[in-house]
Amino acid sequence: MFVNWGWHMTDKSLLVGAAAAIKIDNLDTDQIMPKQFLRGLDKSGLDKGLLWDLRYDELGQTRSNFILNQPEYSKVTVLIAGANFGCGSSREHAVWGLLQFGIQAVIAPSFGEIFYSNCMNNGLLSVMLPQALLDALMAEALQQTGPMTVEIDLEEMVVRSPASRSEFMLSDRHRAMFLDGTDMIESTFSHEVDIAVFSEIHWSKYPWLRDIASRTKERIDTL
């Protein structure tokens, strides 16, 4: 396997990455991006907060035994993770932080639902593998000294490691979003007329839902 880490030069359909395995189930977004890093007005500076409590101890000292702190893992672009990765809070900061840290893909048996959507909306590739295949991949990565090279191939829809080849599923929509970097809002704008027509019909059927927020606030403010 050749090693040219990062997205393949010509397009994003092949990622050759250095992978680190973090064998923790239910790694929630509170842990991926703790609350003290949610105070910003923009998306910047979140690489610093990524997995903070795993990377640093209570005195702010680097935990040298944590995988992402080991020098040979400093350039990893792929995480191999446990079940229900990114569960919990909806904070998209978790995804922004992963990307800013250099992570381009996460491979896990399952993801928190909102996190999964957030990944897709930001071009962070989330690859779901059946538990048994994931376990094998995880074991292989943990046996290595140093990061394991993995290839995520969006043409063949497979993840390859030195010892394995696993197919995975990604909806056509998500695959296209990922490869083309679709601006979702722009593509929804193409339905602008549909939305306008829909809303008028909707409110004629359910008039109590029209301007529900502004009307309610006005009503209670005048009480």
Binding site: V95, N121, M184
Partner: peptide, 20 residues
């Protein structure tokens, strides 16, 4: 149901969501 910030932007702009 809960949504992420990209979706917050999408709802603000369109009052709709692309919903799986």
């Amino acid at each position: 149901f809960g949504i992420g910030t990209s979706e917050v932007e999408h709802v603000l702009a369109t009052q709709t969501l692309v919903y799986r």
